[in-house]
Amino acid sequence: MALSDLLKQLLSDVADLKDIPTEGAFNIRNNGKSEGRRSTKNIRIEPKENGSGLDIYIAPYTKNESVHIPALITASDVHDVVYNDFHIGEGAEVNIVAGCGIHNCGCDTSMHEGIHRFFLGKGSKVYYEEKHIGEGDGTGERIINPTTEVFAEEDSYLEMDTVQLKGVDSTKRVSSAKLAAGATMVIREKIMTHGKQTAETSFDVELNGTGSSAKLISRSVAKDESKQLFRSKITGNAACYGHSECDAIIMDQGVVAAEPEIKANHVDASLIHEAAIGKIAGDQLVKLMTLGLSEKEAEEQIINGFLK
């Protein structure tokens, strides 16, 4: 099976894959259909009976394996909805690379809605990356709405990096998690919007078990007339630790709103929220200009560092 150059490029941008991978488990979805799929001894990828998505089973105590499941859209006027469930066996350690790329050269809207559920078995560890990219010179909108639901059993660990830096006109990102005793979750989100784009992020984390912890770190840049909304809610129902941090740079007529909520239902719950929104500090620009950078170069450098 050969992929088109366009598909290869998108695949590379979204999942750092140059072509169909020669090893490891994967499923490549394009315009709602599978372009290729492989399971391995420890990672089984099975289509759901109703065809709505995939069940991905990671065998207990799997180590050092990865699974790629990028979703791509290369046509205009596509509305793709997929439900993928990840069942992570006890003690397994796995890297999961998802993400979505839309290349829309047409005038109609193309949209991807990916609903990912993670069922983390006891003591399992998941490193999850997702990149969202919009490309193409058509006037049709590129919309990506990812939903992530996490059910973390005792002592499991999820680290999630989610990045959307260009080309997505509208996004609603909804993440929720329920953590049992000793479970840990770290989410790092990086978003840059420009033009008239909009981005909404919502986190809802319940720390239900003793010793559970969550850290949410969001860094975003809103340029031109783009608008962003960051909502986070951490509920501490046990002796737990929760920390959310929203840092945003606004430029031009960009707008960013942060609506944090922390709720402690247990006397030993320790919850923190930090939020900072502002333009690039003038002294940062001046410092880099004294090193010989133009104002524009200094601005780029500061943003690149901020979103690195």
Binding site: R219, D247, A281, D283, Q284, V286, K287, M289, T290, L291, G292, L293, S294, E295, Q301, I302, N304, G305, F306, L307, K308
Partner: peptide
């Protein structure tokens, strides 16, 4: 500032600037 920097003037701030990510 940039032109002067490129002409060979350097300046160490009294209160150095902090950068997130750099």
């Amino acid at each position: 500032i940039t032109e002067r920097a490129n002409a060979g003037i350097s300046f160490a701030f009294q209160q150095p600037v902090r950068f997130k990510g750099v």
